[in-house]
Every structure is written in structure tokens, then in C-alpha cells.
Design a protein around this nucleic acid. Structure first.
Length: 342
DNA sequence: AAACCCTCCAACCGCGTCGTA
DNA sequence: TTACGACGCGGTTGGAGGGTT
């Protein structure tokens, strides 16, 4: 119902526009305005359907259309708006003067989407893709088990060294994952309410023993990880069965308190302070391990989205839901790599 | 030089929505 | 309320152009 039949009509030209056609269309619209698109082609002397004319005008010929590469600011705006609006290209385009919805859509499909995927984000949800993380978990555990074996038979020094390198690399993969978790693009306008600061990320990075000396990133390098910073993390990782099974391992060297919620054969839960902020009942069963590293009390400005009025400075004390990635990373590293110190 | 592959983007297609009679 | 015409939007396509083998 209501579908325009104009493109189905025979004898109308399709495909790329010639300069002559462009000129006719521009001259007509400049003189008379577009008026009814359906009537326009005849009046302008074009053998095209109205729809084709409208598209050519709005996507290409309109005088205020900006051409050329998208700037860094535009790219960030698109990412930000897409995290809120999804594939609402026309809505996104209203915030980018001179850019058409078609251009933004193309830019998204050819550049930004791939970029997010490469960085380990789901381009639709803008959340870290946990499937990659869990896919590598058995690999890391296998490496750790190999280390145990090697420690029992410490005769092959070369193999030992190779294995240590592999373990270090695996640690770095975890760091990358957790950075991405912490840097996930939020689904709300706020960029810092649940965020962690760049200083916290730096502390996390610097707390990991480097493979080689001087593996210390500065904040600008961190910022290059992703144009958006430190959104809300989710708790799904802690609920994953493979994580729970590791946490219930009696050989885990990390000391933790079993929660009261051990009925139904569940593993003793490590917990976070999520319950203080999240109303999610599944989170409320988590209890802080003891002893636990104390995160910094944040009083400084978190990184905000430039130009976003809603992302005002937010100060908070104690842990937020975004703290758990760091905590969990340390727990995991302590569990499997006794030489790692918090 | 030719064949092949990949990327990019203008244009098309089909559907949903709005306005009007 | 319903039917219909017109427009706008988002998904998809196909060809041009550049890079690689």
C-alpha cells in the first residue's frame, strides 16, 4: 500500500547520472524548488523517475553537501550516536551538517563497522565481544597447566623460556580484553557515570609485569585504543560457567570468601560491590573477596565525550560496576600465575 | 600486461509512514 | 475508517577504480 510505482514504469532511465542530467535537475530546482518529486522529472525535462531525482539531489547535488573524508570529530559523533540510535542514519545525519544519511551509512559499513569488529566490539551493541575472550580462555589455562608440568620437570630451559613468553603474551591478551571491556561504549548519554578513569587503566596496565622492560603505555596511547572511553561494564563475564568453575578450583591460590549463596551446588561466588549500585538480583549475590586490592577513590574528571553536554564531570567514591574488570583480571592472574603479584 | 581480488560508494529496491480525500 | 498517492528510510547491489599476484 502506498508504494510509489514510478520506478517500475518502463522507459525511464536508470543508473549513473550524466553531467547534463545533473545540470537540468540543479537548474530546475534552483528556479522552482523541487515541489512534487513525482511531477519534477517531466517539468525538468528528465527521463527519470521522481525517486531517482530526489535521491540524486539529496545525496549528491544539494549545494550544502560536504564532500571528502570524515573528520575525527565526525567519526566520534557517528560512533556515539550509533551507540544510542542504532542504524537511524537520517537521525544521525541531522547532527552532522553537510553529511547525508547515505554517506554516513556507507562510511559506517565500510569503515566504522570493521574498525569496531577489529577492536573486539560488537558493532550493533558496541559492547566487547566476550566470545573471543572465552574462546581463548582454554588456551590460557592450558598454558598455565603446561607451566605446572614444566616446574615439575625443569630440565628443558629453552622450552621453559618459550612457555613463559607464551604466558606473558596471554596475559597481555587479557589486558587488551579488559581494556576493551572497560572502554565499551555506553548505551546512555553519560560517558562517565559508571566509567573508570584513564589513570585507573594506566594503573592496571602498569601492574602487569611487562614481557620486555618498559612496557608502559601513556594515556595518549590508551586513547588511541578507542575514541570512546570507559563506559559501563557488564557483569556477564563473572557469571560465565567457565569462570565459575575456575573460581571453584580448590587449588586456586587466591584467598576468597565463599558467599552464603552456595546452595544448589553452585561454586562459591566471588563478588563485587555491584550490588550497591545495580539492582540486578543476580549481581547481589556477589561478595567482596578478602583481602582485596583497594581501587583509587576517583575525584578527578573522567574522560568525557567532547561536546556532549550530558557527560559532565562525575565524581564518585569507592568501587563502581566498572571496577570489576581490573579486580577480576588480578584475581585471574593470581589464580593461574603464582608469580604474579597484585 | 592480464587476471583476479577487494574496496568504496552512488544508486536502486522495497517497505513503512504520513497526509489527504 | 479506509484507500491511495507520495515521500523518506534503511538495506542491498553493482560497477568503477585501485591494488595485488
Amino acid at each position: 500500500m502506498g508504494r510509489s510505482p514510478c520506478c517500475d514504469e518502463n522507459g525511464l532511465k536508470k543508473g549513473p547520472w550524466t553531467p547534463e542530467e545533473d545540470q537540468k535537475l540543479v537548474e530546475y530546482i534552483q528556479k522552482h524548488g523541487h515541489g512534487s518529486w513525482r511531477a519534477l522529472p517531466k517539468l525538468a525535462g528528465l527521463n527519470r523517475c521522481g525517486k531517482s531525482c530526489r535521491l540524486r539531489w539529496t545525496n549528491y547535488l544539494k549545494p550544502d553537501i560536504k564532500r571528502g573524508k570524515f573528520s575525527q570529530d565526525e567519526e566520534q559523533t557517528i560512533l556515539h550516536l550509533h551507540s544510542i540510535l542504532g542504524n537511524k542514519w537520517s537521525a544521525i545525519a541531522t547532527h552532522l551538517p553537510g553529511r547525508t544519511d547515505n554517506e554516513i551509512k556507507n562510511f559506517w559499513n565500510t569503515h566504522l563497522k570493521k574498525k569496531l569488529i577489529q577492536m573486539g566490539f560488537d558493532p550493533m551493541t558496541h559492547q566487547p565481544r566476550t566470545d573471543h575472550f572465552f574462546a581463548s580462555l582454554p588456551h590460557l589455562m592450558a598454558l598455565a597447566n603446561l607451566r605446572d608440568l614444566m616446574e615439575q620437570h625443569p630440565f628443558d630451559e629453552h622450552a621453559m623460556r618459550l612457555q613463559e613468553e607464551a604466558v606473558h603474551l596471554a596475559k597481555l591478551q587479557y589486558v587488551q580484553y579488559f581494556l576493551q571491556s572497560a572502554a565499551s561504549i555506553p548505551s546512555t548519554n553519560s560517558y562517565c557515570q559508571n566509567g573508570i578513569t584513564d589513570m585507573e587503566v594506566l594503573n592496571l596496565l602498569n601492574s602487569i609485569p611487562p614481557i620486555k622492560e618498559n612496557l608502559v603505555l601513556n594515556s595518549s596511547e590508551l586513547e588511541n585504543q578507542d575514541p570512546y572511553h570507559f563506559g559501563n561494564a557488564t557483569s556477564q563475564l563473572l557469571h560465565h560457567p567457565s569462570v565459575l568453575s575456575q573460581l571453584s578450583d580448590p587449588q586456586v591460590p587466591f584467598s576468597y570468601q565463599p558467599s552464603l549463596n552456595t546452595e544448589m551446588g553452585q561454586a562459591p561466588f566471588l563478588t563485587t560491590m555491584l550490588s550497591q549500585e545495580d539492582n540486578n538480583p543476580s549481581d547481589s549475590s556477589w561478595v567482596l573477596p578478602s583481602p582485596t586490592p583497594v581501587p583509587p577513590t576517583v575525584t578527578e574528571t573522567s574522560i568525557t565525550n567532547p561536546g556532549d553536554a550530558s557527560s559532565t564531570t562525575s565524581s564518585y567514591s569507592g568501587r563502581t560496576s566498572s571496577y570489576w574488570p581490573e579486580l577480576f583480571l588480578k584475581i585471574l592472574l593470581c589464580m593461574r600465575f603464582p608469580s604474579y603479584t597484585v
